[in-house]
Structure formats: C-alpha cells, structure tokens
Amino acid sequence: MLDETLTYALIKVMKAHRNELAAALIPLGLHAGQELLLNQLWREDGLTQGELIARLGVEPPTVTKTLQRLERAGFVFRSPDPERPRVGRVYLTDAGRALREPVEEIWLRTDEELLKDLTSEERELLTRLLRGWPRCQFHS
C-alpha cells in the first residue's frame, strides 16, 4: 500500500534524480551535496560556518564534514575573520571557483533530463508547484 502513495513516488523520483546528479559530479571530484555548499559560496564568498548551516538548513556536523572534505580537495579554505578573530570564514580557492560553470551545466542537463517528457505547460505547472511548496525554503 505504501508504494501506491504520492510520498513513495516522490521519494523514488528524488532518489533517482539525486543518484544521477551524484554520478555526474564524481568526475569533478565532488560528492552529492557538496555542490550545494559551494553554491552558497559562489553567491557570497567568505560566509561563516553558522551562515552556511542556516542557508543550507542542515545540521552543524553535516557542514563540518562537508567543509573538511572540500578543504582536503582544495576547493575551499577557512580563515579567521580579520575583525572578529574568533569567527572563522570559509572562502573559495581558485579550484573551487572553477567548479561553478561545470556544476551549473550538470544541474541544467539534469533538469532537462528530468523534464524531457513533459509538455511546456506541465513543466511550468511542476515548477510553480514545487517552488510554491510551503515547507521548502529557496535561498536566492
């Protein structure tokens, strides 16, 4: 019976979509989810870990682990805030900045794959429904 619910269908779609995205990110040296943190830095470099946690809506250990992996890969570095030395800020390296275009291309291709069998009206409706979902917060 559970497999007949809309929730089940949504979870299956989300997992398949995320697995496809994750596979496309591997050649860039990224794990799924890391691009979301990088995206926040592409929008505003030099955020604090607390700001990243708030923007991503995830638990602190998730951001800590993601930052550690991104640092080891050479995509970000942490540095004390010059005005508040006890506050650490996260900055992109040149390698981290260089990932923006290929990651955005992957996301656009993945979107196209997801939407390829929908009419333009269906695409518009799905976009409107998902962006208007009350439990989701989209950060601009």
Rank of each mutant, 00 (worst) to 15 (best):
T119D: 00
P80S: 03
R97L: 01
P27M: 06
Q34A: 13
T119R: 01
Y8Q: 02
Q68C: 14
L118T: 02
R97Q: 07
E113K: 04
Y91S: 03
I106N: 00
V13N: 12
W133K: 10
E105Q: 09
S140Y: 13
V87S: 07
E121A: 12
R86N: 12
T48K: 02
A32P: 06
L99G: 00
R100H: 14
G88T: 12
L56R: 07
L30F: 10
P80Y: 02
L36R: 13
L52I: 08
S120F: 03
L21Q: 05
T64S: 15
A16Q: 11
E105V: 05
R100S: 08
V103F: 08
W133G: 10
R43M: 09
L38Y: 00
N39T: 08
T5A: 01
H139L: 06
T48M: 02
P61R: 05
A54N: 10
F138Y: 10
P102I: 05
R72E: 13
G132S: 11
P134H: 10
W42Y: 08
A23R: 15
E71V: 11
L114R: 05
D94F: 06
L92R: 04
K15G: 07
P61K: 03
L28F: 11
S120T: 13
E104A: 08
G74Q: 06
F138V: 03
E112S: 08
R78M: 02
E122Q: 09
P82H: 04
T119E: 01
G29Y: 11
D94C: 03
R78H: 04
I53P: 06
I26R: 14
L36I: 09
E113V: 10
L130P: 09
T48G: 08
D117E: 14
L108A: 12
L38R: 00
E101W: 09
T64C: 13
K15P: 03
Q137F: 14
R69I: 13
V58M: 05
R128P: 07
R89L: 08
L37R: 00
R18H: 14
E113W: 12
G96P: 02
R128D: 11
R72Y: 04
T93H: 08
G96D: 04
L21N: 04
I53Q: 07
K12C: 15
W42C: 00
P60K: 09
Q137D: 08
P27G: 01
R18C: 07
A73H: 04
G74F: 02
I106Q: 02
G50A: 13
S120A: 07
G74A: 05
L67A: 03
R128M: 10
F77G: 01
F75C: 03
A22W: 05
R109W: 09
H17E: 07
Q137I: 13
V76C: 00
T119P: 03
P85F: 03
S120I: 05
W107G: 00
V13L: 15
N19W: 11
V87T: 13
T110D: 06
E83K: 12
P102A: 09
H31A: 15
P82L: 02
T93S: 05
I11T: 15
A23Q: 14
Y91K: 09
I11C: 12
L108Y: 14
Q49D: 10
L47R: 11
C136L: 14
Y91T: 06
E51S: 10
A24H: 01
F138P: 05
S120E: 15
L129S: 10
E101S: 10
M14E: 15
Q40T: 01
P61M: 02
L99P: 00
R55S: 11
G50I: 03
